[in-house]
Amino acid sequence: MTIAAPVSEFLVLPPRLDDTAALLAAAARRRGLAVEQLAGPVVPDRRRHAPGGHLYGGPIFAGAVAADLDLVLLEPADDWLARLPYEYSRREIALTTLGEARWSRTPMFVKQPRDKTLPAGVYADGSRLPGDHTLSADTPVLVADIVTFLVEYRLFVLDATVHAASRYAVNGRLDPAPIGACQHRDAVLDFAESLLKGCADSLPSAVVVDVGLVSDADRGDEHWAVVEANMAWFSTSYAADPDRVLDVVLRAAGPRDRLTARDQVFTKNPTTSG
């Protein structure tokens, strides 16, 4: 069951639509929301400070239009993954700066917490990371032990409950499938229930969490672990039910006057690059 929205609600989309934006637009229209695809990062006068606005789009677009739409954008803290208990992360993870990471002389997985300017992946050592001409030394990055995810799932979380979900990768390759058709459905949802029960207060009420099955070659076993957390208003839906994904997106990027006290800490301004 999806969540009904007042008829005055509207969804703003960027000039170029990806597959997820198109699916969300169709879902929004089905429930009576107006859909406004902007020609550029400028809000038209008739939508400026109008009540009932929501958004789906990238950080540059969101950063340009959110204030004029009176929106708040929910996002997890940069260090959320690094602060997770080991039982959920299953690897050592640290939030540091790109400048510090460049000093490393060991292989590592490096990604930015929210921005996508730095290609996320395994680097043989810090010398392989981009120089200052690409990203400044104070750019925040997550540095993690290298692990192998056998299969990965995307969870759209609403009020500490998995509201929609999809498989998105198998053996590191894109392979979306509805979670109901996947052999790991029950294991994924059981792991998510434990994670959200223990860590829900450290996440926004509407967020995306990616989880995966890790192969531990040293111990000869497999276990579930969190891959990362992301903003729901800038996350690919893959094979998840778009109507239920829309429920999460509407909460994650919604009117400022509906912001709850609980979510105030998760309203950092979006990045303006990436």
Rank of each mutant, 00 (worst) to 15 (best):
R114Q: 14
A67F: 14
R47L: 15
Y88N: 12
L71P: 03
D68W: 05
A124T: 08
G121E: 08
A137Y: 02
L150W: 00
D70N: 15
A124S: 01
P76K: 04
A94D: 05
R91N: 12
E92V: 03
G131H: 12
A67I: 03
P119C: 08
R105Q: 15
V143D: 00
H54P: 11
F109N: 04
A124I: 12
F61Y: 05
T148D: 13
I93P: 01
R154A: 10
L95C: 06
I93N: 09
G126N: 01
H133F: 15
P59N: 12
Q112M: 15
E75R: 15
R102K: 14
L135V: 11
K111N: 10
A77P: 09
P107Y: 06
F149Q: 08
L142V: 02
I60A: 11
R90M: 09
G58F: 07
K111T: 07
V65M: 11
K116R: 12
Y88V: 04
T96Y: 07
A67D: 15
Y153M: 06
A50L: 07
G121D: 08
V65K: 00
G52F: 09
A120M: 11
A94C: 05
G121C: 10
E152A: 07
L118W: 07
R128L: 15
E92A: 12
E152Q: 13
P130L: 08
P113K: 07
S89V: 06
A62Q: 07
W103M: 13
P107E: 15
A67M: 10
A77K: 09
G121L: 05
G121M: 04
P140S: 08
S104G: 13
A64F: 02
E100S: 12
L69F: 06
T117M: 09
D125F: 00
P85S: 08
E152M: 09
P51L: 07
P113C: 04
A82S: 10
K111Q: 14
L129M: 09
G53S: 14
R47G: 02
A101S: 01
D125V: 00
L73F: 08
T139F: 00
G57Q: 09
V151K: 13
L135C: 03
K116W: 05
L95P: 02
L73C: 04
R48V: 02
P59K: 06
E152V: 02
D68M: 01
L84K: 04
L129K: 02
D78R: 06
P140I: 00
R90S: 14
S104I: 06
L95K: 10
D138N: 12
K111E: 13
A94H: 10
A50D: 09
L55A: 10
P130W: 08
I60S: 13
V147E: 03
H54F: 00
F149W: 04
E92R: 15
R47K: 08
R83S: 15
S104Q: 12
D138K: 04
D145V: 11
Y56Q: 10
L84E: 01
D115L: 07
T134N: 09
R154S: 08
E152H: 04
D145G: 14
V151T: 15
L73D: 02
S127A: 13
G126I: 01
V141R: 01
L55V: 11
